[in-house]
């Protein structure tokens, strides 16, 4: 299925938390400020409904997303109020992909874990948590994965300040 068909199918199934979609579009020639938007389309999903939404994606025959390829986050800008949680799904039998985006407020960066639906998410969530400070509620193993346990701050946030020293070793 192409993206439009996928989106229509998700709507018809009453997918939990589905909140619109975003598709690439050309630049508006009238509007000088408009930059247009290139790349891939995605669907927007309410963050607290993610596990239920992914469950549908996995179990619905027509969607058939067997594999969670990637889960990561984006901090679009320091002044933005939300982080994006971005998930890439892949269906092997139908050979289509879906990008899912959820907004996670920086004030309360919480998301439910999706590891019970796709085990693949477990390590991605650990990485996401240490890099962006998102707490995954219900995560079975919330340790750091790439960074030391005592690392201060969330490196991939745009307002991250590089440390001056680590355990007495100067980083400058």
């Amino acid at each position: 299925m192409d993206f439009q068909a996928l989106y229509a199918h998700l709507q018809a199934q009453g997918a939990a938390g589905l909140g619109g979609c975003d598709e690439p579009r050309a630049k508006d020639p009238e509007d000088k400020q408009d930059k247009g938007r290139a790349g891939d389309p995605f669907v927007l999903v309410a963050v607290e409904q993610l596990p239920a939404f992914l469950q549908l994606c996995r179990d619905d025959e027509a969607l058939g997303f067997e594999v969670l390829i990637d889960l990561s986050a984006v901090d679009p800008a320091a002044e933005d109020e939300d982080l994006w949680l971005v998930i890439q799904l892949l269906s092997l039998r139908h050979r289509h992909r879906l990008m899912i985006k959820s907004m996670v407020p920086k004030a309360t960066p919480c998301a439910p874990t999706v590891a019970p639906v796709y085990r693949a998410a477990q390590w991605h969530e650990r990485e996401c948590a240490e890099m962006f400070g998102i707490t995954f509620e219900g995560h079975s193993d919330p340790r750091h994965i790439l960074l030391p346990e005592d690392w201060v701050g969330y490196p991939l946030r745009k307002d991250y300040v590089f440390p001056k020293e680590y355990r007495g070793v100067s980083c400058e």
């Binding site: 938007r37 290139a38 990637d70 901090d75 679009p76 890439q88 990008m99």
Partner: peptide, 29 residues
């Protein structure tokens, strides 16, 4: 400006790059 995900078949599996641009010289993500 925009965002794209591209996965390719690396010797070890799918190598995916998810890039986000705001139209500038440097990536947002």
């Amino acid at each position: 400006a925009g965002e794209a995900y591209v996965g390719i078949e690396n010797p070890r599996g799918e190598l995916g790059h998810y890039v986000v641009s705001d139209g500038g010289k440097v990536a947002v993500r």
